[in-house]
């Protein structure tokens, strides 16, 4: 499961499709699990008429959570030591997201990854980093 440091090279990449055609129901599931019930994520009437956005949109933390799945699938369970992101664009229902980790450094049993998630138009929605223990 875990990565072997000696097999890793700077510039290696790992990509996963996080979601195809993101559904509003998934936003409801994330609201329920995380406890963040901000109506801009689940309440189309409120979001259009009061907030003025074209539709509900994903919690940034849902995108971070889905991107984290790509990272843990790559580095193995319980191996993550740091994970941080900037939310660069909003994610909307219907979006298809792909996330890529790129090896930036391997040192002292730690791999440093650059992390990027993009939508179907190739626009960045999340940009960040992660570090993990490797064998």
């Amino acid at each position: 499961m875990a990565l072997n440091g000696s097999d890793l090279k700077v510039g290696d990449t790992y990509t996963e499709c996080l979601v195809e055609d993101l559904k509003r129901t998934q936003l409801v599931m994330y609201a329920g699990a995380s406890g963040d019930y901000n109506p801009v994520h689940t309440d189309e009437v409120f979001t259009k008429q009061i907030s003025g956005y074209p539709s509900v949109f994903a919690h940034g933390m849902l995108t971070m959570g889905m991107t984290g799945r790509m990272i843990t699938n790559y580095v193995g369970d319980g191996r993550l030591t740091k994970y941080g992101v900037r939310f660069t664009s909003q994610v909307w229902p219907g979006d298809t997201l792909n996330a890529t980790a790129t090896v930036e450094e391997v040192n002292d049993g730690i791999v440093k990854l650059k992390v990027e998630t993009t939508n179907q138009d190739g626009a960045s929605v999340l940009s960040g980093y992660a570090t993990a223990r490797v064998d």
């Binding site: 009061i50 740091k82 939310f87």
Partner: peptide, 18 residues
């Protein structure tokens, strides 16, 4: 009040150290 709570605030960054 609702515009302030729902519209204006967004999450810009999140970092975790485990």
């Amino acid at each position: 009040a609702s515009t302030a709570a729902g519209g204006g605030g967004l999450h810009a960054e999140q970092h975790f150290e485990y």
